[in-house]
Design a protein around this nucleic acid. Sequence first.
DNA 1: TGTTGGTCATAAGCCGATCTTATGAATGGC
DNA 2: GCCATTCATAAGATCGGCTTATGACCAACA
Lengths: 322, 322
Amino acid sequence: MTNITLRQLRAFLAVARARSFTRAASELNLTQSALTMAIRGLEEEVGLRLLDRSTRAVAPTAHGERFMVTAERLLDEMQRAVDDLRAIADRQSGLVVMAATASFIGPVIAPALRDVAERFPGIAVRLIEEHTEGAARRLLAGELDFAVTTLPSPEPGIEAIPLMRDRFGLLCPDDHPLARAGKSLGWGVLADFPLVGMSQLNGMRRLLDQDRDGAQAVRGLRYEVSSMTTLRSLVESGVGVGAVPALAARPSGGSGLAWRELVPAVHRTASLARRAGRSLTPAAAEVVLAALAQLRQLRDPGIELLTDRASLIRQGWLSHRG
Amino acid sequence: MTNITLRQLRAFLAVARARSFTRAASELNLTQSALTMAIRGLEEEVGLRLLDRSTRAVAPTAHGERFMVTAERLLDEMQRAVDDLRAIADRQSGLVVMAATASFIGPVIAPALRDVAERFPGIAVRLIEEHTEGAARRLLAGELDFAVTTLPSPEPGIEAIPLMRDRFGLLCPDDHPLARAGKSLGWGVLADFPLVGMSQLNGMRRLLDQDRDGAQAVRGLRYEVSSMTTLRSLVESGVGVGAVPALAARPSGGSGLAWRELVPAVHRTASLARRAGRSLTPAAAEVVLAALAQLRQLRDPGIELLTDRASLIRQGWLSHRG
DNA sequence: TGTTGGTCATAAGCCGATCTTATGAATGGC
DNA sequence: GCCATTCATAAGATCGGCTTATGACCAACA
């Protein structure tokens, strides 16, 4: 086992290049004495004279000259490797692989990514639109840095922290009678109209299924669709109405759609999830922060933020730096 | 500038591979605590988490995993470079480039090289038969590790140490009248026979030219040749006699040739020479030592050893090791 | 030829980095 | 919930490396 240090390599190169201990010392901000000892240590370690020196001249030996090339390359590679890591740490580069449920991507993730791209042009993102189960599977497989999902129950091997919750409300055309009914709406009103809802594969659908009040929004469902975009289209064209979370309803006003709270409140909680014990990369942390900022900007009565930067730091999702 | 140490790299690799600080610590004969600190230092230096760790599990992060490859390669290259140097230091490999005058090669250098080859099969030698001036030029050009020459005067830029000296004597056929003349021979006897001698390009010829007694061996030279082999052939076939140094006469008895001292003694001194300030490689030192041993074995009355191992060490030609 | 200025080598003491010991905090298994 | 195990942290000890001071050597110059 070698006990050679990079310090010795640097000392050797400096002396060999400067052809002088004294000059090399001043370049390295050391004393000549320190270099003498460093070179001695190096030569003892390899058992070979690398620098021929007298009080009048210093020059690398033939072996020393060959070793210079090696030492140079070694230090160079080391520097490059460290620089790469530092670039990632400084978020000048990096790849974020993440998954999010569709309803988050439009109003939250997309603008967050635009934001991140502006400040850190070197960060690349792979965004996977994925429902809860798929995200969980990918997390466990180690494919993702993190995911934004409506994780129902904490799975082993996955660590999650509540991010926000929004309540379900009625989505209807903005010229629909219920759109401007004076009083607050109860879940019972849904019984009077043809209902549009998500298929059973969907996370929010299952929330409704399991809720006593929410179940009224899926009983006798007339149209069952697989994406929120489709649901919105159907509602907008007056085919029916549906119960959707506040976030999924956005944008509502001005888009031909109206959203009204339903009481009693039924919530859906979205979480930040990662594989247990896996830390966020600096780039991923930046995306999470930007998403948080987007959520804060929404200022929607139906949407409630459940965490903040400090809390994320406290629970080990973010570091203090940056 | 990175301040990362190879120690940290080794610590990182050990922990990442063992997936445990404790196990890695016992492998490296350190405490778990030391590794914790080493890893912390490394991570601070690059600004990036490289190992995700809890009290129950340790695993490299994605970046850590990539860095493992780099760190492995770096340490490996370092090890290889050092091993190469050590092989040279141990004389398991190495190339010696040397020059010697022809008269040395046969009786001294050749058997010395056979000897070295036996003990250090990895050492390669490039041996150049070269007269004094040529050797000096090559030394100054840095082409040679060392040379064995009859250096007349110390040149600047060349460092020389006397190796041995031999005296001139009469070379004649072994059935020649002078071969068994009772008394010692004076230089005057040469006047009575046709003389064979080296050309003026040769070092020993010039020694004779410049010596009052020796000059009698070149005055009225009948045959002027350019190599000792030729000279010996001519003398052996009875064409004439000549004055040659003891070493150049060997082997004399049993080869059809006889060699008799001439008085007063005229000496030729052979030196070990190298470029000033240039140290011998371990392999070259081995050759020098072997040559010295050969010279010692000659035990020829006309040959006088002028140095020894201790003296070479004292004057910086050899190191103590080995 | 003695002096002088500059160079690398060496020694001693200091200081900081690193290691060890001891302890704390977290977590999975029972 | 308790226990065993693991990593983290703190404090003291130890070791290596740095600086300062000095020596030895050598070339250049008077």
